[in-house]
Amino acid sequence: MTAALAFDLLLVAALVWSAARALTVADVFRGVVLFIVFGLLMALAWARLGAPDIALAEAAIGAGLTGALLLDAVGHLRAKREPGP
């Protein structure tokens, strides 16, 4: 029980921290990477809440597809900022 509670508290702290850092870190690319980390932590949280359906969807969609879309947008943004070497 105490180990499970400790894990929950740690996971909750990591969730809130990664969310806050994703928004406040100076570089957008690092923000997106932190957001992907946040998505994976959310998948863990769903597993802890006894919701494996959502955990599956979150891991594939929340972390995977959203991450791919966001990283692509960052790449586009950077290509616009620094037009080619």
Partner: peptide, 20 residues
């Protein structure tokens, strides 16, 4: 646990992988 959403998400991930 499983169903149309998760299956669709995996299919989409395959599409993204092939695109990459």
């Amino acid at each position: 646990p499983g169903g149309a959403f998760q299956a669709g998400a995996v299919l989409a991930a395959a599409g993204v992988l092939l695109r990459l």
